[in-house]
Design a protein around this nucleic acid. Structure first.
Length: 505
RNA sequence: GCCGCGUUGGUCAAUCGGCUAAGACGCCUCCCUUUCACGGAGGAAUGACGGGUUCGACUCCCGUACGUGGUACCA
């Protein structure tokens, strides 16, 4: 019998959640749900110097907006409380101690200054970043070099210390990554990572393995930036005696900048004009606000679809997937090895597709806030008709105002030249007489309005090419929008007259 | 520097030894629409490079180049 699948997303509450983070959540979530398992959210707040107020709440809000609700979390609780590492602080020491007692780790008393000095002294062109490793540790101030008795004396005297893993010499750490296959590491090239910091908090390295073990995590998915520290984690699982319970690993490819090189960052979004965070994030220290996909007008369904396809596909030509379809079809083995450059144009295309797939009624509550924000008022029945008329030309939610503002307020004429260029008395006469005869239209439908327009036009010897564009400019203010007579029908006879009159004058 | 990982059109990508190398985004042309979109029909554009292995290589192996990540008492 196989264990129930349990995965976790373990962010640090240090700021906004960006695309890569949400995609990591998504792949974890999809994998768990595909296998009928649990998705747990654990907050990795072991570095109090980087703690940012509000960042944890922001994570809950993002997951909620995306529809990726955890089964267990600090908020929701669960069988393995607490889910916040700072609250689990007391649990880690015993495991670090266990490692020291077993000879797999040691106490180190080196001050930050001593570490800097060591790195500075050993730094050469051939070795620009010296490590605290098997070659150097006997020259440092630790329980290996000093002896356990002296170490104990220092500890008793209150000397600050950390606990470091003692990396073995001349060993190969080999493991199978679900995405990359077999990966090899030479232990001589890995440093003696700090496991427990001087403040008693564990580092990520200790905390992940302890918590993954205690929380019975079966599959650990994380970004590729963690791949190099995997051998430390694997050794820890063995040294702690939990080798049989170790989760299967998968290191996800990175999401890269669309231009240039490197990981996608917040700055790239600002530079290139697209969001990088899921939702707006305001840094409480600097007050700086970064726009998110939600506020930009993306639908959450589109957002997760975009992310799902950035590094994965099901092998068919299908590109639009509901969350349920993603759950049914997701296969971690089909995730790509290489990073993907983010393409904002494609992201917009997805959102456009999702808007088209929504019914007009479903769009009402999504569009309404944008109308109200502009100071306009509307009722649902009217809004629904407007949506039907303009949704195919809307890509992001704010486009509904851009493309439909003239249904709610009298537009400013922005392309006046389109009327005045070939304007003459004959046209003026035409608009005046047509406007005057509007009362004669018995049923106010766009067909009837158009028929009346054509009738007057023909009677005065004009052609559509002469007067249709001017009418559009009068009604819309620019050369865009749905059929002019449909707009006329919607705004009503009074408003139609008003717009014609004010344009003529 | 060292180590890990990667490399199919501008971008996302299919292919798991038989390729005249899918599809999508974007771009271009035309049609539709006397607006702008949508839609429809076309088009340009791809296997980093060099060696092997093989009847046959985009697919397997080895180099090289390039990219990317790591090299913290940060995650």
């Amino acid at each position: 019998m196989t264990k129930k699948v349990r995965v976790r997303f373990a962010p640090s509450p240090t700021g906004g959640l960006h695309l890569g983070g949400v995609r990591t959540v998504l792949y974890n979530y999809l994998f768990a749900k595909h296998h009928g398992g649990d998705f747990v959210l654990r907050i990795e707040d072991t570095d109090q110097t980087r703690y940012v107020e509000g960042a944890e709440q922001y994570i809950y809000d993002c997951l909620s907006w995306c529809g990726l609700e955890p089964d267990e979390s600090p908020l929701k609780g669960g069988p393995h409380v607490p889910y916040r590492q700072s609250e689990r602080k007391a649990m880690y020491y015993q495991y670090a101690k266990q490692l020291v007692d077993a000879g797999y780790a040691y106490y180190a008393f080196d001050t930050p200054e001593e570490l800097d000095a060591m790195r500075a002294n050993l730094k050469t062109e051939a070795n620009p970043t010296p490590q605290y490793d098997g070659k150097i540790r006997m020259q440092m101030r630790n329980s290996l070099a000093l002896g356990m008795e002296e170490a104990q004396r220092l500890i008793d005297a209150g000397t600050p210390y950390v606990i470091r893993i003692k990396m073995p010499q001349n060993e190969q750490v080999v493991f199978t990554d679900m995405i990359r296959g077999e990966v090899h590491f030479d232990t001589n090239l890995v440093d003696d990572k700090v496991l427990l910091k001087a403040d008693g908090m564990p580092t990520y390295h200790l905390a992940v393995v302890v918590d993954d073990y205690l929380m019975q995590i079966t599959h650990a998915f994380r970004g590729e930036e963690w791949l190099q520290s995997a051998p430390v984690h694997i050794l820890l699982w063995q040294y702690l005696g939990w080798g049989d319970a170790m989760p299967q690993w998968a290191h996800l490819p990175l999401i890269l900048k669309p231009d240039g090189h490197g990981k996608l960052s917040k700055r790239d979004g600002e530079r290139l004009g697209f969001p990088v965070f899921a939702m707006n994030w305001k840094d409480p220290k600097t007050g700086e606000e970064t726009q998110g996909f939600r506020e930009r007008g993306f639908l959450p369904e589109a957002f997760i679809n975009i992310l799902a396809m950035l590094g994965w596909n099901d092998g068919t030509e299908q590109e639009i997937f509901t969350k349920e379809e993603l759950i049914a079809k997701f296969d971690i083995g089909r995730v790509h090895k290489g990073g993907a450059k983010f393409d904002y144009e494609k992201a917009k295309w997805y959102n456009h597709q999702y808007i088209q797939r929504k019914t007009d009624a479903e769009l009402i509550p999504l569009v309404k806030p944008y109308i109200i924000a502009q100071g306009a008022t509307t009722d649902d029945a009217y809004l629904e008709k407007v949506i039907a008329l303009i949704k195919e030309r809307c890509t992001l939610l704010p486009d509904f105002w851009e493309q439909g503002h003239f249904f709610f307020t009298t537009p400013e004429i922005k392309e006046l030249a389109a009327i005045t260029d070939k304007w003459n008395e004959q046209k003026k006469t035409f608009f005046e007489s047509w406007a005057a005869g509007l009362d004669g239209i018995t049923n106010w439908t766009h067909e009837a309005i158009e028929a009346s327009f054509n009738e007057v036009m023909a009677a005065q010897g004009l052609k559509k090419g002469d007067v249709l564009l001017p009418l559009r400019i009068m009604l819309v203010g620019g050369k865009y929008g749905p059929g002019v007579f449909q707009i006329a029908e919607m705004v009503g006879i009074e408003e139609l007259r008003t717009r014609i009159q004010s344009a003529i004058n």
